[in-house]
Every structure is written in structure tokens, then in C-alpha cells.
């Protein structure tokens, strides 16, 4: 038996909110995969803590998307009953955990962006998004510090940790451009000051990332070719596997509750 996917009326504001909710849910799920597997107990707790922050942000964003959409969708239906092509998260965030260095590089690229993004969104003319931003920016400040410290420790660590961290940077770099891309549906929200223009955050992001990477004796790739697609539902093969696990309970036992 299969459970039908929900349909979503993707007005610009619903789509915008879902994209951010999906970012938080997918990265939060990836971090939760470390639970019980991290290299040390403190990191196990740190990754689970950050995953929980992201899950909390996702829930608030999904609930708001449901309210704006005004149909009978809710946070659970958005999370459990949409298929890969309906997910709108950044490709960066669905990339597999790999080794610890790779998880930290992914976290560092995103958290540095999210921190700037949520701080700017506190001035959104949409009061709910501004309120969610005010909570999220406090959490992202910790995420940035945590991952920055690890980038330095790993990059400026042993030959092996340096090699692994550099290779993670090289592999994930092409996914960073999508964070700063804007499509037509978001342009109107930016003009209405509901959304911030992410391109305006890029210089500061690059400055922070460059300074930490250089302190870590690592280097950013020269290439500026960037892969996109997540925002419009064109994902890497990894998201399907992630969702099959995340959604397995609701797909097997529709409507199951605790």
C-alpha cells in the first residue's frame, strides 16, 4: 500500500517558507544520523543538539507555511507526505555526512550563511518570519562557532585531518552558490521586504569563510562553477534515500501517532 503525496499550493510566500523549512529539516535529519556514532561523546551531544535546534526551526516554519497556505496541510504532512521532487531544500544540506570533516565543512558553510541570513531576516516585514528569525539567529551563532572551531582544529591538525578537510571543502564548494541564488518567485518578496536578498550577504559570508579557512591552513577552490536545483525540486540521489528513512513510519502506518 502506498500513501498519496499531498499537493501544495506554492504561492511565493508558501514556497519561500517551505524552502527554509526543508533546509532546516534535512540538515537536522543529517545531523541526527550521527547520534550514537560521533567520534566522541561531547560531539554526539553537540550534533544532536544542533539537529534539535534545526528541527525546532523547521516545525515553526512548516506550521507557518500551513497557516499561509490555508488548506488542511500541517507540519507533519509537509515533512512526511511530500516526495523528493516536492522538497525545496538546498543541495548542500542533503549531501551525505561522509566523515566527520565533511559533516563539519557542510555545517560550517551553511551555519555561516544561516547566521547572516537570520540576523537580516529579523527585519522582515513579515512578523512571523521575523520572530522565527529572532529565535534562530541565537541558535545559529552557536552553530557557527562550533563548526569554525572544528575547521581550524581539523585543518591545522594532523596531515590526515588536513587532507580530509581540504577534500571536503573541494567536494562541497560547488553547492555553496545555491544559498545566494534568487529566482522570480523570491524577487517579489525581496521587493516587498518580506525576504532579504541573499546576494547581499555573500561578501560577508565569503569574508568569514575565507578567514577561518585560512586560519585552518586550508584553501578555498578557485572554481566558481556552482550546482543548483534543490530550490526547484531537482535533487541529488541522496535525498530519496534520506526521505525513505525519514518517512518510513508514516508511509508504512499512515496517520500513526505516539
Amino acid at each position: 500500500m502506498t500513501v498519496a503525496n499531498i499537493s501544495v499550493s506554492e504561492t511565493p510566500l508558501v514556497l519561500y517558507t517551505l524552502r527554509r523549512a526543508d533546509d532546516a529539516l534535512i540538515l537536522g535529519h543529517r545531523l541526527s544520523e550521527w547520534c550514537g556514532h560521533a567520534p566522541m561523546l561531547e560531539e554526539d551531544m553537540a550534533l544532536a543538539n544542533m539537529g534539535l535546534d534545526l528541527l525546532g526551526q523547521a516545525r515553526e516554519l512548516y506550521s507557518y507555511a500551513a497557516k499561509v497556505e490555508g488548506r488542511d496541510n500541517d507540519e507533519d504532512k509537509f515533512a512526511y507526505l511530500r516526495d523528493v521532487r516536492q522538497y525545496r531544500n538546498l543541495l548542500l544540506l542533503e549531501q551525505p555526512n561522509g566523515d566527520f570533516a565533511r559533516t563539519m565543512v557542510r555545517q560550517f558553510f551553511y551555519a555561516t550563511f544561516a547566521d547572516l541570513y537570520w540576523r537580516a531576516m529579523m527585519r522582515s516585514s513579515d512578523l512571523t518570519l521575523a520572530a522565527i528569525a529572532a529565535k534562530s539567529e541565537k541558535e545559529s551563532a552557536y552553530h557557527v562557532r562550533h563548526s569554525s572551531e572544528w575547521i581550524v582544529r581539523l585543518g591545522d591538525g594532523t596531515e590526515e585531518s588536513h587532507r580530509r578537510t581540504q577534500s571536503a571543502i573541494d567536494e562541497l564548494w560547488a553547492f555553496t552558490g545555491e544559498m545566494f541564488a534568487v529566482d522570480d518567485s523570491e524577487r517579489g518578496l525581496i521587493d516587498a521586504r518580506i525576504a532579504v536578498d541573499p546576494a547581499a550577504l555573500h561578501p560577508q559570508w565569503l569574508k568569514t569563510v575565507s578567514s577561518v579557512v585560512s586560519e585552518a591552513t586550508l584553501a578555498l577552490p578557485k572554481s566558481d562553477w556552482m550546482q543548483q536545483g534543490g530550490r526547484s525540486g531537482r535533487h541529488s540521489e541522496h535525498l530519496g534515500h534520506l526521505l525513505s528513512e525519514l518517512q518510513s513510519m508514516q508511509r508504512t502506518f499512515p496517520g500513526a501517532t505516539w
Binding site: 534539535l52 535546534d53 534545526l54 528541527l55 525546532g56 526551526q57 516545525r59 515553526e60 522565527i132 529565535k135 534562530s136 541558535e139
Partner: peptide, 8 residues
Amino acid sequence: TPTYSGCP
């Protein structure tokens, strides 16, 4: 009001 977004 929640302390942290994901506070269980």
C-alpha cells in the same frame, strides 16, 4: 515562549 526552537 520556548527557550530554544527545538526544546522538547
